Simulated scan of single mutants.
Amino acid sequence: MMTRKIRKLAVTAMCCAVAAAGLSGCEDDDMNSFPFDEKQKAADFVGAKKFDLDGKSVSVSCSGKLAAGKPVVVLLHGGGDGLSKMAAFQKTLSGKNRVCSYDRLGAGTSDKPDGPQSFTSTGKILTGVLDEIAGDAPVVLAGHSMGGLIAARYAPDHQKRVKGLVLMDATPSTMLADMEQAIPASAKGPAAQVREQNLAIFQGQNPEKLAMPDGKVRSAGNTAVEVIKHGKPYLAAIPESGPRLEQAWTAGQRKWLALSGRSKLTTAEKSGHYIYLEQPDVAVQAVARVSTQAAG
């Protein structure tokens, strides 16, 4: 039983680390392949819909009504998840905002990518989704784990549109290097397994085929930002290297504060990695605060 439990912890850590490496290439010109038309009208559907973006079918779900001057909240799921995981959270948020989520390529019911993906290609799809569901309305990106990393890498280049960020235990920007330091190549047993699995995932061996090198935290200007970190130190349970990984994760959350002078860090004391499921009130309140600032 102990071996099985450790293996489960290793897999959990692996999923977190998928969300963990910083994505580079965010300054590529290809990011804006879906040009933002300031006069574009947002789709006002409620429910599920598929959009053809860059030749791929992308699944999108929207709830709530779009109100003049109020932002559209867009949820970005973590690695290995999909929009269905965030359905209850989306429903709760939609009482006060229009809220949408989508499956990235390789996730949920969206098409699979043809080949390796980078932040550039992922950003192109995100831009296409925003063009369809937000039009010229301001946007708040609320991302969990790897979704938070993608949101944080995307926002600096899209400050005219992205007016708020909520990062829910977002993957730190230097987690790949942090993990290699915490778990040396000489490690044995479960820790070595975690290291090996994560290195493969960072190289693109994941459902989204997304390669994820570390990257710097760049400024998103005066964007309203709330960073929420987990309070239950679940990473510390990984044999030998856990405490170091937990420390690195916490340090990584603090690094995200450099995104903006309007950044705030909150700890969800009763939650593990899935804050929006384990302590949803903390996440809901953060989205509400950021949405109010984004509308101001």
Rank of each mutant, 00 (worst) to 15 (best):
V217F: 05
V217E: 07
R218S: 14
R218T: 15
S219V: 08
S219E: 10
A220S: 10
G221D: 06
N222D: 14
T223K: 07
E226N: 11
V227S: 01
V227A: 09
K229P: 00
H230A: 11
G231D: 06
G231N: 02
P233D: 11
Y234G: 12
Y234Q: 13
Y234R: 12
L235R: 10
A237D: 14
A237N: 14
I238C: 05
I238F: 04
P239A: 11
P239Q: 08
E240T: 15
S241F: 00
G242A: 06
P243K: 05
L245F: 02
E246W: 10
E246I: 11
E246S: 12
E246D: 10
E246T: 07
A248S: 10
A248C: 04
A248K: 09
W249Q: 13
W249E: 12
A251Y: 05
G252K: 03
G252D: 02
Q253T: 06
Q253W: 01
R254M: 13
R254P: 00
R254E: 15
K255D: 15
K255M: 14
K255R: 15
W256G: 01
L257T: 04
L257E: 11
L257G: 05
L257V: 03
A258Q: 14
A258C: 01
L259V: 03
L259R: 07
L259N: 06
S260R: 08
G261K: 10
G261I: 11
G261L: 08
R262A: 13
R262F: 03
S263K: 07
S263P: 09
L265G: 02
L265W: 08
T266N: 07
T266P: 00
T266S: 08
T267H: 02
A268H: 01
A268S: 03
A268W: 03
K270I: 00
S271Q: 07
S271M: 04
S271C: 02
G272T: 12
G272P: 05
H273L: 10
Y274P: 02
Y274T: 13
Y276L: 14
L277G: 01
L277P: 00
L277A: 13
Q279R: 01
P280F: 09
